[in-house]
Amino acid sequence: MKKNLSYMDSVHRDGTIWNLSVMVILLLFPLAVAVIFNAIPDWQGLLMGLISTAPMYWAVGVVETITFVPMLGAGGSYLSFVTGNISNLKLPVALNALDQAGVKANSEEGEVVSTIAIAVSSIVTTLIIILGVLLITPLTPVLNAPVLAPAFAQILPALFGGLGVVFVSKNWKIAVAPVLLMLVLFIAVPALNAGTVGIMVPVSVLFTLGVSRVMYKKNML
């Protein structure tokens, strides 16, 4: 007898099939290159390269998954973890869409809205990269022009300035403690920079949840 699947069940089923398929296809790429060009990997280089790269990114990957899935929604998570650029693009797009639609992230409408926003963002990104690859010769001098470099170097401040106003103003009581903590940490600790901001996201999220819980229990929210 065919079991009736809820929408969320079907999202998880389809997402699992898609993500595992993409994973296999991604691994087939180096395999195909090796077969076509009759090349075997440099095993020692591979091992050393993995030792110096994988442990950190595996740890970050686990923490990011736990942190971002509740924010991205189910469909948005399956897509975002395949297409990447989560904190600098997919999550802001989803947040903006939820705000624009006036729906909550943990509602079914929120699930629909964040999935649509993230899917559209992924499609547009992919198409623009394809266009960039097709036009790489004429585009390279334009996009690499020194005059434009500062604009592209400051995408994150330009993005989070606008986003910060929207969300901090709506949740200022929740925002005071984490914003102050992060300001102090990033100003005082030289090791915190563009390379380590990803690690600080879960730290900040956990801290914010803890402070919010205490404030909620004391009827301050």
Binding site: N106, N171, L181, M182, N193, A194
Partner: peptide, 15 residues
Amino acid sequence: SNAMFIGMIAAFLGY
């Protein structure tokens, strides 16, 4: 849910 979003934004404001 709001606290998670704010936590993420706070980290980038610090950055």
